[in-house]
Computed example of a mutant assay.
Amino acid sequence: MTYLPSLIGGMLIGLSAFLLLALNGRVAGISGIVGRLAQGANIAINASFVAGLLAGPLLYRLFAGGWPAMIVTTPLPLIAVAGLLVGFGTRMGSGCTSGHGVVGLARLSPRAFAAVASFLIAGILVVTILRGFGL
């Protein structure tokens, strides 16, 4: 039953993406939502979605009785560089994994299939290269 929390989380992500698309006609791409919020567009909807994302860990702690055990061994500068590269790639790819991977694939978008293939190939290459350097 170790898969159950992941299954429930995935179902909730799918449900929230479906509801946002069905009720508001918006694709649940986190980068787009945060970008629109930063630009002051559709503040109520976008802020509600971001607030829900931020409330998730707090709700987890409330229902699970504590934070999940987690050990991060990656150096902070590498994490910062990775975060900047993800942000750059998100802008360059016109979306993030949630928009392309969750909603785009479900809509059978050819652009989403190309984006997700690019994400996966790039991820495999980066992990392979970093493991070669012992990181």
Rank of each mutant, 00 (worst) to 15 (best):
I45C: 07
A106K: 07
L54K: 13
I8Y: 05
A80I: 15
S98P: 03
V34G: 00
V50A: 00
G101I: 15
S98W: 12
A112C: 12
P5I: 00
V86P: 03
G123L: 13
L58F: 14
R36E: 00
W67T: 09
T74K: 11
G14D: 10
G29H: 06
I121V: 15
G87L: 14
V27L: 06
N42C: 03
F49T: 03
G87P: 07
L15V: 04
S109L: 07
S118G: 06
A106N: 09
L4N: 05
G93Y: 13
N24M: 12
V72A: 03
P75C: 13
N24A: 07
A38V: 06
L84D: 08
V102S: 11
F113V: 11
Q39G: 06
R111Q: 06
A112R: 08
A80Y: 12
G25F: 00
C96Q: 04
R26H: 02
F113G: 11
R61C: 11
G32L: 00
P57K: 06
G56H: 13
V116M: 08
H100S: 01
A115Y: 13
G35T: 13
A51H: 09
N42D: 12
G89W: 08
L85G: 04
P68E: 06
L23Y: 08
M70P: 03
A47E: 08
S98N: 13
G95I: 12
I13R: 00
I79H: 10
V81N: 02
Y60Q: 06
L84H: 06
L7I: 02
A38Q: 10
G65W: 12
L7R: 01
L59K: 04
I43Q: 02
L78S: 08
G10H: 04
I30T: 11
F113C: 09
A69Q: 09
A112W: 09
L37S: 04
T90S: 06
Y3I: 10
L105Y: 00
V102P: 09
G99Y: 15
L105G: 02
V27S: 04
G32A: 07
R107A: 03
R36A: 00
A106S: 14
S48T: 14
N24W: 12
P110H: 12
L76I: 03
V116C: 04
S94I: 06
S31A: 07
T90H: 02
R91H: 10
A38M: 11
L85F: 03
G9E: 02
S109M: 14
L21G: 05
W67N: 06
S109P: 07
F49R: 02
A17G: 03
Q39Y: 01
T2Q: 14
L54M: 15
V102T: 15
N24Q: 13
G65R: 07
G123V: 13
A38L: 10
I79M: 14
S98Y: 12
G56S: 14
A38C: 07
A80T: 11
A28H: 04
R107W: 07
S48R: 15
G104E: 09
I43H: 00
A22M: 11
A112Q: 11
G52T: 08
P110K: 15
F119V: 02
